[in-house]
Amino acid sequence: MEQAETLEDFYERKFEWIPDSLRKDIGHFNVFQLDPYVGKNAKPVPYRRRDYHKITFLRGNGRVHYADKIVEVQKQALVFSNPLIPYKWENTQEVQGGMFCIFNQHFFQNYTNLNQYSVFQPTGIHIFELTDNQADFVVSIFQKMLQEINSEYIYKYDVLKTQVMELLHFAMKSQTSTQLDKVKVNSSQRISALFLELLERQFPIEEIQQAIPYRSASEYAEQLNIHVNHLNRAVKEVTDKTTSQWISERILQEAKNLLRHTSWTIAQIADSLGFQEPTHFNNFFKKYSAQTPSRFRSA
């Protein structure tokens, strides 16, 4: 299987350009009409993981390969994709149209943890067949998203978050969801989901005296009551990243948030992120961002 597609890969594949927000390493959200990418203009979507979340509404017949299941969409459906489960679309020429939005976990920083919702969990239902009335409701939300993202309203991304959550809760409350999408979740997927949930639970850091309790793969393995080698194998198998990569990337993301949005000293930030010495934090930050914390803060 190919490596997980990043947001950068998505934009290069679809548009041959990358938004500035991705280059600035901030939360990202966007919404699109599906119509230009169906019918004779449809392009094959390879079976692979994506390292971002996606919510898709589509009209028409289609086939979704989702983990180890194949789900037939008869008329119209709402589909939730997440970084843990690979998927691909088939028969895209029979899809008549639709809309989709993409976003990363960072977009919901300090708002909610997406991993807690069943539509983004390996064991949850991800594909929802819709009635005509339900489809009209979903379309209205996507249309609001399109209108909002093109507005000049300074808080439009707050509004977009609430609209994503409206779709999410609509799906979870839906009584007509298909049962074909009950994915056989293997132990590696369960372990990876539990690890990522535990990792995300350590954040955000909101007070100086607060400190993350777990810094190493072995500490997470101990909390999950499994051997560290078992954890490492499972996470690598499911996500194509090592446990240490996930931990380091999440700590780096939080470090950038604290440097950018607080007046804490670098020593205080280092301590809250579990570094025994500020020099260890400086070395870590420079290794993964190619600049010192001081330079990042002053940029």
Rank of each mutant, 00 (worst) to 15 (best):
Q3I: 10
Q3P: 07
A4I: 03
E5F: 10
L7Y: 09
L7H: 08
E8V: 12
E8Q: 10
D9F: 02
D9Y: 04
D9A: 08
D9Q: 06
D9K: 04
Y11N: 05
E12L: 15
R13A: 14
R13S: 11
K14N: 15
K14G: 12
F15D: 14
F15G: 15
F15N: 15
F15I: 15
W17G: 15
W17R: 15
I18F: 07
P19M: 08
P19N: 11
P19V: 06
D20N: 11
D20K: 13
D20R: 13
D20Y: 13
S21C: 12
S21V: 14
L22W: 08
L22P: 09
L22F: 07
R23C: 09
K24N: 08
K24L: 07
D25I: 09
D25M: 10
G27V: 05
G27F: 06
H28C: 06
F29G: 01
V31M: 01
V31F: 00
V31E: 00
V31S: 00
Q33W: 06
L34N: 00
L34H: 00
L34G: 02
D35P: 00
D35T: 02
Y37V: 14
Y37K: 11
V38E: 01
G39R: 03
K40H: 12
K40G: 13
K40D: 14
N41M: 14
A42Y: 09
A42I: 08
P44I: 09
P44F: 11
P44C: 08
V45Q: 07
V45M: 12
V45I: 13
Y47R: 05
R48I: 03
R48F: 03
R48L: 04
R49Q: 07
R49A: 01
R50V: 12
R50H: 13
D51G: 04
Y52H: 07
Y52A: 02
H53D: 07
H53T: 08
K54I: 13
K54G: 13
K54F: 12
I55V: 11
I55R: 00
I55C: 01
I55S: 00
I55L: 05
T56Q: 13
F57W: 00
F57M: 00
F57L: 06
L58D: 00
L58W: 01
G60A: 06
G60P: 02
G60T: 01
N61I: 06
G62Y: 02
G62N: 07
R63G: 03
R63D: 05
V64S: 04
H65K: 10
H65Q: 09
H65N: 10
Y66F: 11
Y66M: 09
A67N: 12
D68N: 14
K69S: 08
V71I: 15
E72K: 13
Q74V: 11
Q74I: 09
Q74K: 14
Q74L: 11
F80E: 01
F80A: 03
N82T: 09
N82D: 09
N82H: 12
P83I: 02
P83G: 02
